[in-house]
C-alpha cells in the first residue's frame, strides 16, 4: 500500500491544464515562459512538473489565464 504523501516543496509542483477550456490566449506563456509554450496556431505545451521553486511563476500563470484553465499543487514525494 502506497500513500502519496503531501510534503509541500518536497517534490516538483504538479500542473494540469484543462485543454477543453483553454482558448490559446497565451497569457500563461507571457507569465511563465519557461513552463508554457504556444506551438503552431494554438497548441499549448506545458510543463506538468515545474521545479518546486517555480511556484510564484506558476501562480502568475494561473492568475493570468482568462478562462481559469490551469490548476496546480505543491507536489508530493511519491
Amino acid at each position: 500500500m502506497t500513500e502519496p504523501r503531501k510534503e509541500p516543496g518536497a517534490g516538483p509542483l504538479r500542473v494540469v491544464v484543462d485543454l477543453n477550456r483553454c482558448q490559446g490566449y497565451a497569457q500563461c506563456c507571457y507569465a511563465a515562459p519557461e513552463h508554457f509554450e504556444l506551438r503552431g496556431h494554438e497548441v499549448l505545451f506545458y510543463d506538468p512538473t515545474p521545479p518546486a521553486g517555480k511556484q510564484a511563476e506558476i501562480a502568475r500563470a494561473v492568475q493570468a489565464c482568462p478562462v481559469r484553465a490551469i490548476s496546480f499543487d505543491m507536489g508530493s514525494v511519491s
Partner: peptide, 17 residues
C-alpha cells in the same frame, strides 16, 4: 511526469496497486 495535482485536501486512505 504527468502526476495530477490534488485540488482539495483529501485526507484519504490510499490502496494503490
Amino acid at each position: 511526469a504527468t502526476a495530477l495535482p490534488h485540488l482539495a485536501d483529501l485526507d484519504a486512505t490510499w490502496r494503490l496497486g
